[in-house]
Design a protein around this nucleic acid. Sequence first.
RNA 1: GGACGUAUAGCUCAGUUGGUUAGAGCACCACGUUGACAUCGUGGGGGUCACAAGUUCGAGUCUUGUUACGUCCA
Length: 1085
Amino acid sequence: MTATIPTLSSQYDPSITEDKWQQAWEARHVFKADPDRPGEPFCVVIPPPNVTGSLHMGHAFENALIDTLVRYQRMAGRNTLWLPGTDHASIAVQTILENQFKAQGKTREQVGREQFLERAWEWKAESGGTIVNQLRKLGVSVDWSRERFTLDEGLSHAVLTAFTKLYEEGLIYRGNYMVNWCPASQSAVSDLEVEQKEVDGHLWHFRYPLTDGSGYVEVATTRPETMLGDTAVAVNPSDDRYSDLIGKTLTLPIVGRQIPVIADEYVDKEFGTGCVKVTPAHDPNDFAMGQRHDLPMITVMNKDGTMNSEAGPFEGLDRFEARKAVVARLDEEGFLVETEDYHHTVPYSDRGKVPVEPLLSTQWFVKIKPLADKALDALDNHQSPRFVPERWTKVYRDWLVSLRDWCISRQLWWGHQIPAWYAVSETGGDITDSTPFVVAMNEDEAREQAIAQFGPDVVLQQDPDVLDTWFSSGLWPFSTMGWPDETTKDFQTYYPTTTLVTGFDIIFFWVARMTMMAGHFTDTMPFETVYIHGLVRDENNQKMSKSKGNGIDPLVLINKYGTDALRYTLIREVAGAGQDIRLEYDRTTDESASVEASRNFTNKLWNASRFVMMNLGGQTPAQLGQPDAHQLELADKWILSRYHGVVQRVRNHVDKYGFGEAAKDLYDFIWGDFCDWYIELVKSRLQGEGPSKRVAQQTLAQVLDGILRLLHPFMPHITEEVWHTLNQVGDDQFLAVQGYPQVEANAIDGDLEAQFELLIGTIRTIRNLRAEAGIKPSAQIETILQSASAEERRILTATQVYIQDLAKVDTLTIRGEGPANAPQNGRVAAPSSTPTTAASSVDLAGIKAELTDFWVTMRPLLEEPLTYVNRFFSDFRRPAVTLLLLLVLLVTLQVLGAVLDTLNTIPLVGGVLKLVGMGYSLWFISQNLLSVDRRQATWAKLGTWKQQVVGQTQTWMQRPAPEPVVPQGQPEPVAAADPWTAPAAPQPEPAPQPEPAPQPKMFAGVVGTAQVLIPLTGVVDVDALRAKVEKDLGKIEAEAKSLSGRLSNAKFVEKAPAEVVQGARDALAEAEQQAEMLRSRLKLL
RNA sequence: GGACGUAUAGCUCAGUUGGUUAGAGCACCACGUUGACAUCGUGGGGGUCACAAGUUCGAGUCUUGUUACGUCCA
């Protein structure tokens, strides 16, 4: 199963890998939870998808989020259970089956309940596995051995128990109330299953004549057909216009019924005429008024939406036909006053997609207040559950406060049949509203109870209705753990669960029902945290829906780009939890640019891993071992620092549900730091042999192993695959259950990272200049880095090999102030490849800078020799000691000249002394540096001297050869104990120096306070270069202007924090310095 | 009508407790095929942070209002 390295393709193929690991994880029971396992339990129950369903983008998103969380927690050491399952979805399944029967010309009544249910279970067996198998394609780390279904035996037992308990406690009752009736599915539906839709309709105004003939009142309605069931007209009691009408009666047109005028606060005086018709059997508000005023309730419709016998001449008409007919009749008879176009909202059935009919019927209800109060108590007094993002707490709470009782009976067959048995023998063999009943766990118990009440001859019939699907879903977090048996190990260990991950659209449907049920039955909230995610919208920012047909099939994208790529795309997009995400998609090609980008990332990881593994000499990270901290080179320390930084950030983000941020951090680290920089930095070391190579291998191996672990929760398949190859382990071990990386805080070195910023900036500046000058990417060039800052020079010197490598520089010179910074002498910059040439064109500003620099550097030496020695070891353990020593010599001469110059009023004396200094320098060069032999002798001398002081030496001018050469007399070129060990082994400079040549022009960039100078060779576009420098200069000048403006604002200096002010000053100084450099360079172009 | 969310580059989005010159990926342009990766590399162009007022030395960030889009509830 584990590939060997040479067989790895240069392109990652998810189609092979993903199936392989999904099967291996399941076959090896990698995610099977064990309550006895150590570690704090971490448990998530899946939001059960409908058995009817097929995988859509919402599932993919939600399960990607859960899996990322669960895999992270598992690797972080929690005893983890993710429990999968499906929901029986009564209305959805019933609709599908009824349509199937309808196609055969049969109604469900013709088929019969028994056969219908038989077919339903068959259908579930056939297609119920689809969604589950599609979930497997996502690579979810669920425990399949615990898979549940809301209609299975255990859960049905839980449902029966919950129902009977609630009934016994008086929290479930049966009664005749107004419910939302869906004429399409011919069932009651709950308030939540009703959707308010805005429609363009009409508002009809009618006259109802007073019975005494003294006039009429005008009423308005959007539903004229219901007037047949009117039993009153209501006005507001404080409405003076109608106060004398109250108590009089009206004669209802068409019907001829006498109905009273009543007064009720509900009536809005401002709306219409201020008179409303009251139809208590067909409108919830009218129903309430009817109850208050004890009005008759006349139902004029059948359950299929046709008019009944109460509708007189309209009997048998469909409700919408009846509407037209009633209007026509009223018009004929002169009662129609006006027909007004009217935009209003109409309640539609969620499932049936037809307007619901408020209808009086006998249904089962859950008394919701006691349950909601308990959930509210948990929320208000225990902040449980905690919502992420927090704003959903308010939505959840507001809903709990204003709940109406929950209608739980559905006139369907697929579902949990209500465990109530009617003593039909008491009411003539039929179930009527007044038939007595018993509630029991099963028929035997019911019979026992019924016999006790009604005698041995009682005939029982079970309530034909089933329970709302959400009744069983409401028990899901604990019914799946064995409840009502609370002694099971699963219940004891994993309940209450830790986190629920779901969408805001089912906060009310599901989350609130779970908290209410759990609060009541288990006396605790069923989860600590509810993470609410947003929607996945389509490419046009539209909600995906079946009816719009704008869904994006996750399986299409998985086939094209791989599961890891799709998952990563979805996770990476989600920043700031709960925000909707938009998925780019091209419907003509089934391509998605953003998923493709993630696929490219998998390929990048694949190839980086391949490169690392090809360079480990066949060894695994374990065989290579941890690198010795003392042998780490700069780049190694840097990548380890960056690595631990990213470990820290990723852990922090995921702990706070910041999955998107964590995913982005990993992307930046892996592609940016690791691939773009570290791998490039170690390539030359891997070509050689010796300790430097080995440390690079060790570091690469350790960091790659860590990357795979870090990324595993986000991209489980590719990381599992690479991890097996990298570690050469069999298929009895899995990355999925390895430890998540821990932060080593002391490996994070901010100073080092800041120094690397200078390095990276320098390389980028050189590359930038090369590109602007049109230098071929493959050409080696000469570059001079010039900085007045000893610190910058120290950093650049220590990292010079990296610069040479990555910027294609064969001759690199690092120096203090040089001749090029002497605009007043009018000379073009010399290609000063040795620092000594600095003396040949020194200027006063340069001397001052050098003097300052020198003084800062040397003061400790002058003050306290011993301190200096210590500092030398601690602060200047770099190879450029020789540079320092030479500078001491040169600068001393310069300083002498300068000091005398300022003391002496006669200008010529200064010049003379300067010349003397230069002369000495030149003499020194001729004696010690000009020829190869002399230079080597000098080098050896210095080397010996330095060897006595610091124990090592280092080249600082020329790029070392790839194969390090150990110089004679230096048995230990790399001082093992020195953490500032050079990036490459030291080597004396053997190559001849270029002769001081006619001076070519240079072009320049700046980074920090350092100048990057590249001598111009060949034909270049000087205008383009000038434009480039001018642009840089413009930017810097703008910045300097803004900074100085701020600093000249007294209030800023006075009120802003000291560090901000100082920061601005430093920035200004740097900007001015950079601007000055660019200006002088511009002159030279 | 009430509540909430969003508005930053052509597109998709970051941007911490207000503090240097507002960032990334994709797309675009130029150059490049160097032995991990062209599903790649290097460089470049591209933004009045929806609008208005306010607080502040200083606002993409805080406050208020306006507009647009979206969602939920009634």
